[in-house]
Simulated scan of single mutants.
Amino acid sequence: MGASYPTKIILAFRSGGICAFPKCGKHLTYDAKVGDDAHIGEAAHICGEKPGAARYDASMTDEQRDNVRNLIYLCTDHHTIIDKVEADWPVSELQALKESHEKQVRQAMEEAFADVAFPELQTAVSWVSNQTPAGNGSFDLTAPDEKIKKNELSNGARHIIAAGLTSRATVAAYVEAEAQLDSDFPERLKAGFLEQYYGLRKQGHKGDELFELMCDFAQRGMRRQADRTAGIAVLIYLFEICDVFEK
């Protein structure tokens, strides 16, 4: 069956768009000349996808095999290595590698919130100038805890939101400064996120899955950690103050 496209996007987000193989560090995002950038990493199965595949476990269901918990984000070369040299890469080793890599990515993101400043925010929302202002929604403040419960988000999402809220004053000041130059800026900013949010909702995504897909969208293929984190800081700012996520 294979992992779904949204699952691959979530895996890429958790991996920071970087190959998880030790000392590889390859950025697996293609900078598109037209349209959105593309994730080009591979969602490698830890326990094989089908009989005969490396580390195949007959006791698993197809859903379990294609779940993000059984996938590790790799470049083509290292995906080939773990499957061709199976003895060197048992399930326990790959699970530990995945956990360590994704933990490092999350820690780097959370630590970078403290350094979010106007230059990074400008890069993160450079797409806004081409966005049509939003025609619906609101900018009403909602308590984060209330919104987290409403959207059925886990502690993992809660930690990202809590870390992101440390940048709230900086993001608010940036949005206010931009609005002085362009009164439609806040509405265009909101519009871009709302369009993506409602599109994902229509596809049936919700909870943590929806949150992580929105985080990936907020990063828009950016490679620098500071810029990637700034994109998520903007998302969390909107999470608190408008209709991006249910209130």
Rank of each mutant, 00 (worst) to 15 (best):
D37T: 13
K150R: 14
V116A: 02
I18S: 03
K247L: 11
P133L: 06
H101F: 12
I46F: 07
M109L: 13
T132L: 05
H78E: 01
G16E: 06
M109G: 06
F113L: 00
M222P: 00
I46S: 11
A43V: 11
S100G: 02
H159E: 10
L94P: 10
G137S: 12
D243R: 01
F139W: 14
L213K: 03
Q122Y: 12
E111I: 02
V116T: 03
P90E: 01
A230R: 01
H27D: 03
Y198T: 11
P51N: 09
L153Q: 07
L121P: 08
Y174M: 08
L213Y: 07
N155W: 06
R14C: 08
T61R: 02
T142Q: 11
V105S: 00
D243L: 02
V244Q: 02
L74M: 07
F13Y: 13
A3P: 14
N130E: 09
M214K: 03
K206S: 15
T29M: 10
D88Q: 12
E240L: 05
E120S: 10
F13A: 10
D66P: 06
I160S: 04
F239I: 03
G52P: 13
S4E: 07
D184M: 06
I40S: 05
L28Y: 04
T170N: 10
C19M: 08
K50N: 14
K149N: 15
Q107S: 12
F217D: 04
H45Q: 08
L97Y: 04
I232W: 03
Q196D: 08
T7G: 13
T80V: 05
G52I: 13
A143K: 06
A117Y: 00
F113H: 04
S4C: 06
L210Y: 12
H159Q: 14
Q219M: 07
F217M: 00
I9R: 09
M222E: 03
S138T: 15
G2T: 14
Q219K: 07
S4D: 09
